[in-house]
Design a protein around this nucleic acid. Structure first.
Lengths: 335, 335
DNA sequence: ACAGTACCTGGAATCGTTAACGTTCACCCA
DNA sequence: TGGGTGAACGTTAACGATTCCAGGTACTGT
């Protein structure tokens, strides 16, 4: 019924226009907008009606200017984000928006200059806090240099050593994968790890060696890919291996294809476990057994942590989140 | 050598601080920042030195307040973005940033209320323009109602009928896929389309029927999925079909899996063509023949269109972009 | 009748930047 | 020498919201 756009005036309505129409002072309008308790219901309604009639929108630039707060949270991700980080970034974005913040995402290469440029971008936008997703340890120093007083949360970059980081428990994930294979009777299990510069790749490779030894098994020589399916396809799996634990699903896809082309049946002769659980992984041939991580929980956790800091409290970051194992057709009892 | 952060003062330096240090007026600093020609080189250098020494950053909120421009471009995508739109959104984001804009992304459901909420979000952030990615035709009306004067570009929502839309030529893509199958001797070709509410799904289905008839072939009954691999897996391909053209790669993955489980060899008995070219598609088993679209070209094109409008000119949007066919192992000569 | 409280007014200062408009000064030409 | 010109720079007034302040009214309870 009432017009959202009353007509093409010169410039958008301001608080004073609303105040005039509602017959109150601009101060009262401000109180309504920031829902202060000391406004009578009737007055509040009159103001809200005026706001609706004029199609008034508060000018966030003016607000930010005077309060010194942008209500924006910066999200810094890796330049070459693959599935895990990408999902995490998305999750942080959603969580930030739900918490009433404006998420500003940007990406940066892993070198010092790239990181500085990325943070610079966010700082120029006057973000109130930063979430760093899946970056190299060096990022910590860079951030502390450039913005020593800004609240920061690190996501997925380790097992949660620093008290400002939120992480999925990588070791637990690796344990699920390996103990599944071991339970199926496999003893010669090879690991395909991700690239050197990635903390997750390091953690998973390290956990692989530890857990193998823990079970009295000898770790096999490491293979390394770059997270892509192609890099997995180009790898030569040890002929002795009957189990392969691959650090992500894309590389696992490539590994499986290559194995099959070499005449080694999956899961008949070799069992393969991935990591991440892509949307499509269940429909690979065979369906891929993999480890699922709850990215959205991580995102929410990070935003909650920062929101808490911004409102003065300093909550302890929650304990690492537990991944789960999805058993599908790419793994079978050792024959 | 010089400190990026000179020390933890109360609040960040302003133009006046820079001006004082450089011995000029704040206006001159402003001119240097906006590189106006009427500043002597020597003065400019002095100002720049002061900026560097203080680690000064211009306050974008203040700038936006006085100019009425945020230098932000809103990107409105579908709530349930699948691969194509997601890549497009990303491409727009990158292009916007490269062009010096701040991309603000948000998603919206396809109903009127969802769209209004999405646009409202962007309008509240005072975006200078909007890119709409892959949305229902109704969006055009909603945008025109809510922001009649805002420059808008529509991406991927049609074959470019409106003069404000940038699209990949869907018909050309479908033609590549179908003529490839026809060239291999297939005549009974079925189409798996996407959901009703998607313009791309409609366009591809329509093109399928037209091109089939154009070649004297009878279109087969349409099958419909929801873009997911699972929905493809749940479909029953006509036993008579020897070729299947699927509207995206995920569904194709499901279709192939199902066919194989039914004992119908791909590509021995049935050839399958997808659409989109996921990173992983080459490593499916068999490698998927598919149609690739150049998303980043679309993104750049959209941003260029809007940037032009914002600086006064009104450039004609470029002609639809041509997709390409990638022939892999999922298609073969009809036996 | 008086204090106390809840709600509201109206004005002024503030945030940091830009736009419009002045001013200064050097230089050139008649 | 006087006046015109243009480059280089300074002054002032916005922009729209928030915050602080000193009230003012009207209702409440004692």
């Amino acid at each position: 019924m009432d017009a959202t756009v009353p007509g093409g005036e010169g410039r958008p309505p301001s608080m004073h226009d609303v105040a005039r129409l509602a017959g109150v002072s601009h101060q009262t309008v401000s109180r309504v907008l920031n829902d202060s308790p000391s406004v009578r219901t009737e007055t509040r309604e009159r103001v809200e009606a005026a706001i609706a009639e004029l199609g008034y929108r508060r000018n966030l630039a003016a607000r930010a200017l005077v309060t010194g707060r942008s209500h924006a949270i910066g999200v810094l991700g890796p330049y070459d984000a693959d599935y895990g980080p990408m999902r995490t970034i998305q999750a942080v974005e959603v969580a930030a928006r739900e918490a009433g913040f404006l998420p500003l995402m940007t990406t940066a290469t892993r070198d010092r200059e790239g990181l500085q440029a990325g943070i610079d971008f966010l700082l120029a936008r006057a973000v109130d806090a930063i979430v760093v997703v899946a970056q190299h340890p060096i990022i910590g120093k860079v951030v502390d240099e450039m913005a020593p007083d800004l609240p920061v949360a690190y996501v997925l970059t380790g097992k949660g050593g620093r008290n400002r980081s939120i992480a999925i428990d990588q070791e637990a994930g690796v344990r699920l994968a390996l103990e599944h294979l071991i339970g199926l009777g496999h003893t010669r299990i090879q690991h395909v790890r991700g690239p050197d510069e990635y903390a997750e790749a390091d953690l998973r490779a390290q956990a692989y060696a530890e857990i193998m030894r823990e079970h009295g098994l000898e770790p096999m020589p490491l293979l390394q890919g770059d997270w892509s399916a192609e890099s997995g396809y180009n790898l030569e799996i040890d002929p002795e291996a009957t189990g392969v634990f691959v650090a992500n699903d894309q590389m696992a896809l490539g590994v499986v294809k290559r194995l099959c082309e070499q005449g080694r049946d999956v899961p008949g002769e070799v069992s393969v476990v991935g990591f991440d659980d892509l949307e499509e992984s269940a429909f690979f041939r065979p369906g891929l057994t993999t480890v699922r991580q709850d990215f959205s929980a991580v995102g929410q956790s990070a935003v909650k942590f920062l929101a808490g800091q911004l409102s003065g409290v300093r909550p302890a970051p929650p304990t690492p989140l537990e991944p789960t194992l999805l058993v599908r057709a790419s793994t079978a009892q050792r024959v």
